[in-house]
Amino acid sequence: MSKPHQIRTALDELLDGLVEGDPFPPERELATRFGVARETLRQALHELLVEGRIERRGRGTVVAKSKLVQPLSLSSYTEGALRMGRKPGRILVTWDDVPATAELADALDVTEGVAVMRLERILLADGQRIGLESTHLPSHRFGTFRKTFDPTTSLYAAIRATGVTFGSAVERIETVLAAPREAGLLESTTAMPMLRLHRRSLDTDGTPIEVVHALYRGDRVAFEARLT
């Protein structure tokens, strides 16, 4: 067994004896305990950070919360968080109207250049920043949200309250690195792997509801699909 693999196995066993929020031994102490070079140890610790098993807190490191598992289904982020016993939350970043590009106009079935509503929010779970979501909505369907919708609450619940029923969606997920602005909003770094989600949702009549581009921290969120 190689030295890096031995160290990783030892760290995994150490984590098995700890619970969420417990302090994780500092790098110097671990290097001495296992008799390895600091560089070898740093690589193993970086892997644990990326996997979301430990997290930096101030000058120290603690055992991280388990990842928020989001179902790949026509349910909202709120529903996924509540299902895992986590408290959902949102921070509004921008809420404006933007001219529809050719691609967006085609996806929302509107005229190119017409104004569409864009809602950008930071997604929280138990106060932790886990995602950055940008949703485009056709203004002719949901323009009244300007007066009625609280952006710190569930958008899907508000859409359903208008009588619209979600019928289907096409969703794509890919691994990316965050741009500096995105990393800053998510309190992360540009080196941390992210999960980029693209979704186009339709109602039961086949009329477009939304186009969503969301970025999730790979160390805090995982996606799950149920296959039958």
Score class of each variant (00 low, 15 high):
H5Y: 05
I91K: 13
A44R: 03
D12E: 13
E187L: 12
A37Y: 11
Q6W: 12
S168W: 14
G163P: 12
L185C: 11
L119N: 03
R57A: 01
V69Y: 00
D22S: 13
E20A: 13
T144Y: 15
K87W: 07
V63N: 10
R196P: 00
E120I: 04
R220V: 01
R118T: 05
E29M: 14
L119K: 03
G21R: 11
G89W: 10
R172D: 07
A222Y: 00
I173K: 14
S76N: 04
Q6Y: 15
L104F: 05
R121Q: 10
P180F: 00
D16T: 14
L123P: 00
I91S: 02
P23E: 12
D97V: 13
D126V: 06
V116I: 02
A105N: 13
L15S: 05
E79I: 02
H198T: 14
V221Q: 04
T165L: 08
A161C: 04
R59Y: 08
T189P: 11
S2E: 05
A115P: 06
P151G: 10
V176N: 09
D106I: 03
D97I: 08
A183I: 05
G131K: 09
S76F: 01
A179S: 11
S2C: 07
T153R: 15
A107H: 08
R59W: 13
G21M: 08
S75C: 06
P138H: 03
T111V: 10
L72H: 02
S139Y: 05
M117H: 07
D22F: 14
P23A: 06
V50Y: 09
A161Y: 07
P23T: 06
